[in-house]
Amino acid sequence: MNIIDRIMDVWELQQLTQRTVEHLTMFAIALVVASIVGIIVGVIVYRRFRVATVLFNVLNIAETIPTLALLVLLLPLLGLGMKPTIVTSIIYSILPIARNTYTGLTSVDKEHILVAEALGLSDSEILRKVRFPLALPLIAGGIRIALVFTMGVVTLGGLIAAGGLGAPLQTGIQLYDKDIIIVTGLWVGLLALILDSVAGMIEHRLEVNRDGTR
């Protein structure tokens, strides 16, 4: 059997198309929710230095917890499957997004804020028209970090019956089937790289636009 046939074999027997759809569905839901929540958290705490410090310290500790440990500890609460996978992804992803949003909003040049005030922008207008747009590159950077986390957690979801591409990886290991492992493993890796580079390109674009060297 030649290589193409073996790949096609694995692809069909393991239903990789369907697995990929499951995988990306969990990924997208988790990342979108984490982005919305993360940005909202960042916006809420950007004027509250104390709250922000405490919150980020707590989230920092949460961030050190091994992914798999958090995933399985949520089982008694959320059962098996997609739910704990998505929730775990979100928990890990909120920190980088919220922290970068916070940093982005608070590190806008004081002079810009002063001018905005002097022109007669209200606080909420300054947030929407000045702080937020200027923080966008950093926020995008945070989402990109979250994207990598989410990809990792969603893949682990296969171990707790969430489906996705982690499932065939587990099957491959249990059956000691090298073809399944290699095809699925490389496909997951490729997918992760593609998504990361797209995010990288978007981040870079935003940065360049801010520098004005378009």
Binding site: E111, H112, V115, A118, K129, L134
Partner: peptide
């Protein structure tokens, strides 16, 4: 009231 300052008064974005 208009307000003009020296240097980076303009919004870069």
């Amino acid at each position: 009231m208009g307000y003009v300052i020296q240097q980076i008064g303009l919004f870069p974005h």
